[in-house]
């Protein structure tokens, strides 16, 4: 099933998608980034770390195919390859769902490490979809990461929580604990960005957020109806019809793999004459 050879010889890279605050778009971003990497032919697996509140499977559209999960693998009840669900649209994309019925204590550091090590051998990218909060699940999702994507909305509580999470990435992770190890490379992904409200001065700008958080920017994802639509039908945004959001995620994925892509901020569409005349009353 996972016999397809990895593109690169080196071990796979573990990237945690985290935020502290809930509802900012971690799972949407995990699915979009995972699918974006896989579309480029990179063998990618997305892991759901939100034990008891599984949702990645819904966003990826494989909720009816879950047999075994991450916890079954950690507890030795199933082999890793039995729990991996291969995406039906992109054949280099896999999902490792979590358990809906157990609690967070089922995750152990040793278990997570063993699974990640096995995945590193087989995959180019391992995307860890962190739960909200900074408890056990979130800490384990980030512990073994090489890189981090901190999903942030231009809104006070989200930026504050992102700052807290950036602190944890620099102190409570394997790379932080190991002497001489490169620190985790953390980047901010700004989501639910509303250009119109920023122009009106109602929402913090990209510069405002970056000035506060002081980490590089991976991308800017505009608020877009395409995101809700994609989650309705269980298709990662980048695999659905092209939209401002899918374009933004594609750009972010390019930057993640080291390409230089100019930062652009696009609304869903240019307001038409009528909308400009009568305001955004819709």
């Amino acid at each position: 099933m996972t016999s397809q050879l990895k593109k690169e010889d080196s071990v796979g890279k573990v990237i945690v998608i985290t935020s502290g605050k809930g509802g900012v778009g971690k799972t949407t971003s995990s699915a979009a980034i995972g699918a974006g990497l896989a579309k480029r032919g990179l063998k990618t697996v997305v892991i759901d770390f939100d034990v008891g509140l599984r949702n990645l499977d819904m966003i990826m559209g494989c909720e009816r195919r879950v047999v075994y999960d991450f916890i079954n693998v950690i507890q030795g009840e199933a082999k890793l390859k039995q729990a991996l669900i291969r995406d039906k649209r992109v054949d280099t994309l896999y999902v490792l769902p979590t358990s809906q019925t157990r609690d967070k204590d089922a995750l152990t550091q040793e278990g997570v490490e063993a699974v990640l090590n096995e995945l590193r051998e087989e995959f180019d990218y391992i995307i860890c979809d962190s739960p909200a909060g900074i408890e056990r699940g979130a800490q384990l999702a980030m512990y073994f990461a090489d890189e981090a994507v901190v999903v942030t909305n231009p809104e006070v509580s989200s930026v504050r929580d992102s700052d807290r999470v950036l602190g944890l990435l620099n102190s409570k992770t394997k790379r932080a604990a190991e002497e001489g190890a490169e620190p985790i490379k953390a980047q901010v992904l700004l989501t639910r960005y509303d250009k119109a409200r920023i122009e009106k001065g109602e929402m913090m700008t990209v510069e405002d957020v970056l000035e506060i958080l002081a980490v590089p920017l991976l991308g800017i994802v505009p608020e877009s109806p395409a995101v809700l639509k994609a989650s309705n039908v269980g298709v990662p945004v980048v695999l659905d019809e092209p939209s401002a959001a899918s374009q933004a995620y594609e750009d972010a994925v390019s930057r993640l793999i080291g390409e230089v892509v100019e930062m652009r901020v696009d609304g869903e569409r240019k307001p038409g004459l009528l909308r400009r005349l009568f305001g955004r009353s819709a």
Partner: peptide
């Protein structure tokens, strides 16, 4: 797409509530 969302949830939750997961 909203109808699809509702259908998907109904199927999934029927299985989860019945404990037949």
């Amino acid at each position: 797409s909203a109808q699809t969302a509702k259908n998907r949830l109904q199927i999934l939750l029927a299985h989860e509530r019945s404990g037949s997961t």
